[in-house]
Computed example of a mutant assay.
Amino acid sequence: MQKIDESILSEVIHKRPDISYKGNYGRILIIAGSTHFGGAALMSARAAVNSGAGLVTVATVPEKFTAINVDIPEAMTIDYNNLQDLDESIQKNNVIVIGPGLGSSDSTVNLIKTVIKNISDQIIIMDASALTMVSEKKIDLNAIKNLILTPHQGEWQRLSGLKIPDQTSKNNLKKINSLAPNSLLIVKKHLSEIYYQNNVYQLLNGNPGMATGGMGDTLTGIIAAFVGQFGFSLKVVSAALYLHSHIADKIYQKDYVVLPTKLASKIPQTMQKFACSKK
């Protein structure tokens, strides 16, 4: 098992070339939020914007549009119940996030199936409610070429059938290779782990102050922005995961709890610190 350390940030994050435009830095669609869980969409979108994504669109319920437009004016909004708009948005974005705050309902299942039906080479990130419904409805993920799964241990238990004490690196690797062999799996926990193409990486930072609502939604937004800008690879996802905990550790030195909104606000200056010329 390989360890992820701070050097990964300067390997992945690089200075932007002088001639740049927003299309160079990823087109991100975040399908998230519901009447009762609108904050998940906001936190994912805020993290994606602050992590440098060029264009971010949030597909959510219309009653959350005002909150998003006021809090994150950089992001666009569409109604995920308008299937024509959703289909078109899926096809024109290169990173699709689905799951944060959607809830466990038939609507979420239909959204997952709509994404799978409309994708070609896009990178798909499944989180939270999407993972719950994939496990409950036994949705086949093998047709997705570029897939990132981000379950916490409870969600991974539902998806894999592995009880938490049995979630060893050997068992996790065997299970993800049978469920979705082309996917990258992040098992979120104390010392989170990444599984991809028979490689296992482990995160060594993080703290108990991160145990609060919205922390996973924020991580998902960071991952989306990173793969949108820097490409889909084990190294890039590892850097996103490390950055999330790195900032959280800095906050935890002074704060009892690490608020996701505070973490997201510190992303741009932290990325600038580690930026280096592209090799």
Score class of each variant (00 low, 15 high):
Ile98Trp: 01
Thr212Ser: 14
Asp71Met: 13
Phe232Ser: 08
Leu185Gly: 02
Ser233Met: 11
Asp140Tyr: 02
Val187Phe: 00
Ile68Val: 12
Glu155Asn: 00
Gln167Asn: 02
Tyr21Ser: 10
Val61Thr: 13
Tyr195Asp: 01
Ile267Leu: 11
Thr108Asp: 00
Met43Val: 10
Gly26Thr: 00
Thr132Ile: 13
Met126Glu: 06
Tyr256Lys: 15
Gln2Val: 11
Ala67Pro: 01
Thr218Cys: 15
Ser169Thr: 12
Ile19His: 09
Ile30Phe: 02
Asn198Phe: 05
Tyr242Ile: 04
Leu241Asn: 09
Phe65Glu: 08
Val257His: 13
Thr57Gln: 00
Val257Pro: 10
Ser245Pro: 09
Thr35Gly: 13
Lys138Pro: 01
Glu74Asn: 07
Pro165Asn: 12
Ser192Tyr: 04
Val115Ile: 10
Gly38Leu: 08
Ser160Met: 09
Val115Trp: 05
Val109Ile: 14
Leu141Cys: 02
Pro268Leu: 07
Met271Leu: 12
Leu149Phe: 04
Asn69Glu: 15
Met1His: 12
Met76Gln: 13
Leu243Gln: 00
Ser178Asn: 06
Thr77Gly: 01
Met133Lys: 14
Ala248Leu: 08
Asn199Leu: 10
Val95Asn: 04
Ile119Asp: 09
Leu203Thr: 00
Gly23Met: 10
Leu184Gly: 01
Leu29Lys: 08
Leu9Ala: 15
Pro208Phe: 03
Gly228Ile: 04
Thr114Val: 09
Asn207Ile: 09
Asp106Phe: 04
Ser10Lys: 09
Thr220Gln: 02
Ile72His: 08
